[in-house]
Amino acid sequence: MKAAPFAYVRPSSVAEAVTALAEHEGMARVLAGGQSLVPMLNMRLMRPTAVVDVNRIPGLDTVAIGPEGGSIGSLTRYSTLEASADIAAHLALLTTVTRHIGDRQVRNRGTIGGSLAQADPVGEMPLACLALGASVLVQSVSGTREVPVHELLLGPYWTSLEPDELIVEVRFPTAPSLFAFSEVTRRHNDFAVLAVAVTATRTGEGFTGVRLAASGVEATAILAEDASAVLEGTSLSDAEIAAAVEATVDVADPSDDVRASAEYRVHLLRVHVRRALERLRDGGDRV
């Protein structure tokens, strides 16, 4: 199918972009990588009055990541994230999940900010950003604010962004040294049925700063805070992992859809939370 008509706006600054968004009062869409937006336009699932193309705005694709975390510009493409030595060294979970996103062509175009604004309920990037405790810096005509990713994601394709707000940067705190990521897809690099990401730091015999996130079991990716609390400071014994698995299942409320039944999703959640935590205990995943 072909997209319905829309006006095309190509701002050269963030100020111009958010002004255009404000003028269209919620009827404009931001075009970043376009790998989700353009299919929706082509299928006429979306008929915006205007498309605001942010691809020519300079300075939105800076990667500034070090041992203390840092920031990634919202327009940074997945292929850039994938190839970044700084990200591999300090935010290895991001490098790992990026390889599960789309295919080469999609990763050449898709952006980190676009993924968070799209808020696909099984998107890898929202999940990883939750597990890493990231936040987004958003700008509008009235100024800027910082929104933690867990407050950004409200539901499927639904965020707390105002219509005139643009994500300009994704900010990361110091990342824990260990991570594990587990994902189920029906086909290679298809949309996930379910995914689990966990990060932690090993302190002596115990694990601290545990953050366990899961997608595919709720309307959006969730942080399993009770499960994280169960594991905090422990050595991730089999009994502690089993308790964390049940604490995660308690906060999951999956529904049936075309990819899997709710019952199967709960089964998968149990299996993959356990496996991710066992791998974390054994030293975690490597890029």
């Binding site: 199918m1 072909k2 095309y8 190509r10 075009l31 376009g34 790998q35 353009v38 299919p39 082509n42 299928m43 498309v51 193309d53 691809n55 292929s79 295919d103 080469r104 062509q105 999609v106 050449n108 175009r109």
Partner: peptide, 27 residues
């Protein structure tokens, strides 16, 4: 497919492979 699934429309833009059905001509 015109929705980014089949990749048959892949072209190279400024050295980068992309799906031309997911890129607007104005871009």
């Amino acid at each position: 497919c015109e929705q980014g699934a089949c990749g048959n429309c892949t072209v190279i833009s400024d050295g980068v492979a992309l799906k031309s059905c997911l890129t607007l001509a104005v871009q």
